[in-house]
C-alpha cells in the first residue's frame, strides 16, 4: 500500500498529519482519566481557585486516606471483587463446556440453542429488571451478593461461550481423538488435553467477564438496597448523591474503581479482537 506519496516532502506531510491525528485520539482517550487523577490529588482549598490548571501547585493524598479509612469504599470494593470474581470463574467454567460442545459436537437442537444465545445478546436487558426482582425477592436473593452473581453469570454466559468456542475452534480435533483412543473418556480428554491448551482463552474470558461484572450498574441498583451488599458502582453513586461537593474524595474513589478494570484490560488486551468479534453485540 502506498498512501504516503513518493517525494520526501509528501512523505513528511503524510506522516506528520498521521501522527498528529493519532495524538489527538490519544489525548481524547486519556484526558478525562488524567483529569480524574488530577482532581483526586488536589487539596480541597485550591480545588476551585486552580480549577482549570493542568496540575495543582500542591498535591495531597488525603482524599485517598479518607476514602480508604473513613468511608465504606473498602467494603464496596471487596463486595465487587467477590461478585465480579465469582461471576468470572463460574461463567468461564460454564462457558468452557458449552463452547467446547459448540465447537466439537453436531447435535439436534444445536442451531436453536445457538440462536437463543445470540438473541439474548441483542435484547434489552433493562426490561428484565422488574421481573428478575420479583423472582429473586421471595427467594431471599435480593439485597444479596449471591443474587447478583447468579444474574451476572447468566447475562455473561452467551458471550463468554462464543469467545471460548473461538479458542476451541483453533485447536485440532485429532488431539482429543488420540487421547480417547488411549482410553480416556471425552470429558477427561477435554479436561487434561484441550483445556490446558486454551489457558490463554480461559484467561481472556475471565478478564472480559470480570470487567463486565465489575461495571454493571442498573441491576445492582435495583437489587441491592443495603450498604452491606452494595457493590462499588452502587456505593459510589450513593456517595455522589449524598456528598456531591466532596469532588476530591469522589474522584479518589473513582480512581480505585478504575484499578481492577485497567489491570484486567492490560491482561486481555491481546485478545480484544477475538473477544469483540465473539461478542460483537455486547461491547
Amino acid at each position: 500500500m502506498n498512501l504516503s506519496g513518493n517525494s520526501p516532502t509528501q512523505k513528511a506531510i503524510y506522516w506528520g498529519s498521521h501522527y498528529l491525528m493519532i495524538a489527538a485520539f490519544v489525548v481524547f482517550a486519556l484526558f478525562p482519566l488524567y483529569w480524574l487523577l488530577k482532581v483526586s490529588v488536589t487539596p480541597n482549598d485550591i480545588l476551585y481557585t486552580e480549577g482549570v490548571r493542568m496540575w495543582p501547585s500542591r498535591t495531597t493524598w488525603e482524599n485517598y486516606t479518607f476514602v480508604l479509612t473513613q468511608s465504606n469504599f473498602p467494603h464496596y470494593f471487596m463486595n465487587s471483587v467477590i461478585v465480579a470474581g465469582t461471576t468470572a470463574i463460574v461463567t468461564t467454567m460454564v462457558a468452557a463446556v458449552t463452547g467446547y460442545s459448540f465447537s466439537r459436537f453436531a447435535f439436534r437442537g444445536k442451531v436453536i440453542i445457538v440462536a437463543l444465545m445470540l438473541i439474548t445478546q441483542m435484547f434489552p436487558l433493562v426490561m428484565l429488571i422488574a421481573p428478575i426482582f420479583k423472582i429473586l425477592a421471595p427467594l431471599g436473593l435480593t439485597d444479596s451478593l449471591t443474587g447478583l452473581i447468579i444474574v451476572y453469570t447468566a447475562f455473561n454466559v452467551p458471550f463468554a461461550t462464543f469467545l471460548m468456542q473461538s479458542f476451541f475452534d483453533g485447536i485440532p480435533k485429532d488431539l482429543e481423538e488420540a487421547a480417547m483412543i488411549d482410553g480416556n473418556t471425552r470429558f477427561q480428554a477435554f479436561r487434561r488435553i484441550i483445556l490446558p491448551l486454551t489457558l490463554p482463552g480461559v484467561a481472556a474470558t475471565l478478564g472480559f467477564v470480570f470487567t463486565a461484572a465489575w461495571s454493571e450498574l442498573l441491576f445492582a441498583l435495583m437489587l441491592v438496597s443495603s450498604d452491606a451488599a452494595s457493590t462499588f458502582p452502587v456505593g459510589l453513586l450513593s456517595f455522589v448523591s449524598k456528598f456531591s461537593v466532596d469532588f476530591g474524595q469522589m474522584m479518589a474513589a473513582g480512581v480505585l474503581a478504575l484499578i481492577p478494570a485497567c489491570a484486567f484490560f492490560l491482561l486481555i488486551q491481546r485478545y480484544l479482537v477475538q473477544g469483540l468479534t465473539a461478542g460483537a453485540v455486547k461491547g
Partner: peptide, 11 residues
C-alpha cells in the same frame, strides 16, 4: 486509545 472501553461505564 482502547483504554476507554475498559473503563467501567458508571465511572
Amino acid at each position: 486509545v482502547f483504554l476507554p472501553w475498559a473503563v467501567p461505564t458508571f465511572l
